[in-house]
Computed example of a mutant assay.
Amino acid sequence: MLDVDIEKFWEDDALAHEDNCFSPKAPQVALGIRMSEECVFAELGEEGNPWGYTPVERRIELNKRYNEKALKIVGRKLLPEEFPPPDSVFPPIRRIGEVFEGKYVHNGVAEWLEGSCKTPRELEAMLDRVEKLDLREFILPPNWEAEKKRIYETYGKKPDIVRHVRGPVTLAMSIYGTENLIFLILDEPDLARRFSQVISDVIFKIASIMDEEAGYNSENKPGGFRFADDNCCLLTPEMYELFGYPILKRIFDHWCPNPEDNRYQHSDSDMAHLLPILGRLKLTGCNFGPTVLVDEIRKYMPRTRIDGCLAPFTFMSNDEKKIIEEVKRDCEMARECRGLNLSTAGSINNGSLLTSMRAVMYAIQNFGRY
């Protein structure tokens, strides 16, 4: 294995995360990689569906074995070994795709959101129905009040708030179609604006409802909001300005008014052409695709923590030489500006090994010193 001073690495890493990874006292670039539960199967040589259901007992057993190996290779346990009792988990609320009459389906490999309309007239009719919905009644299950009372009395737990949603462009393209949305913005911009406004209203209402369910009001609600919007890269800047930007601006203004509030965008795609627009949102964190590098992001986001820019397929290839090359590149770009949280520019997938994480640690320790 590559030679890493494990104890010193983790001491330095703790300092590296201070001040949103911008601390002048940070001795090295921060490490954002903590692997994922998907990775247990390839690492341990076990059968299983990384994106499917794994029984809790089996999950705990796999995670414990994985953590034993992780301690030896990277010096830390990375995955949870305890899970909440099943009867302490709130019944699921309906998701935003269902509000827009889409269906979440599992194809045996992963879950997808299937659309609900294909033509402008079908879209108009669907938006009419969404606007008339009693959203609280629609998203909360029939047993919600009883379960909320029981769980609170038994475990002292309140419902989770909503601070992360599928991004507006990805949602719209799932519901209406990729090419359909592009042509809609070009051919019927007024209807496109209405679609955007309804998405904005639904996100706002769902988050507000769950704030209330958790016992918060407009004065004491927790700050922060995150969007995952891979498909927004398919829009031109002018299209995104019309459709996506107003939604993020409204939500961030309401839930993230303070400089320290988390304003986050995940779009693991080629986002360079949208950086000038996203830069106006004063994001505190971002995760873009592997072609959007530190030096380009910094032109528009001088104080945004960059979670990247290691290509996920480089990481999953387990080619230590290539991993070290990319990490060295990113560390050199971040040396003057800081604010880099060395992560994959996208998801960490099954097949990514712990030795690859150690290779990243090696590269940071050798090439990522400030």
Results as ranks from 00 to 15, higher is better:
13 D>C: 04
342 L>N: 10
41 F>W: 04
219 E>I: 12
16 A>N: 06
107 N>E: 11
360 V>T: 04
179 E>F: 11
182 I>M: 13
351 G>E: 09
131 E>H: 11
151 I>Y: 02
64 K>T: 02
130 V>L: 09
13 D>R: 07
165 V>C: 14
355 T>S: 15
174 S>K: 13
32 G>I: 08
69 K>T: 07
352 S>I: 00
48 G>I: 02
198 V>N: 07
197 Q>P: 09
5 D>Y: 05
170 T>H: 03
310 L>R: 02
193 R>N: 12
262 N>D: 13
337 C>P: 06
187 D>Q: 15
3 D>C: 12
175 I>N: 11
206 I>P: 12
59 R>D: 06
220 N>E: 04
35 M>K: 08
38 E>A: 14
54 T>D: 06
53 Y>A: 13
153 E>C: 07
100 F>L: 08
32 G>T: 00
356 S>V: 10
103 K>N: 14
368 G>T: 06
96 I>P: 00
148 K>I: 04
328 K>H: 11
298 R>P: 00
34 R>H: 14
253 D>P: 07
326 E>L: 00
94 R>G: 09
319 D>A: 11
76 R>W: 07
338 R>E: 00
324 I>M: 05
8 K>L: 15
225 F>V: 05
228 A>Y: 02
103 K>Y: 11
159 P>C: 09
179 E>G: 09
151 I>D: 09
190 D>K: 15
125 A>M: 14
248 L>I: 10
343 S>P: 05
251 I>L: 13
227 F>M: 01
286 C>F: 03
178 T>W: 12
84 P>M: 08
82 E>L: 07
178 T>E: 14
255 W>G: 03
233 C>S: 09
362 Y>K: 05
317 S>K: 08
358 R>W: 03
77 K>S: 04
69 K>E: 10
193 R>T: 11
324 I>A: 01
56 V>M: 13
314 T>F: 00
122 E>G: 13
304 T>G: 00
175 I>V: 13
321 K>R: 15
243 F>M: 06
69 K>V: 10
360 V>Y: 01
52 G>F: 12
31 L>K: 06
263 R>W: 03
181 L>F: 06
231 N>F: 15
203 I>E: 15
120 P>A: 13
278 L>V: 10
49 N>I: 03
173 M>T: 08
158 K>Q: 11
131 E>D: 08
327 V>A: 06
109 V>M: 15
35 M>N: 08
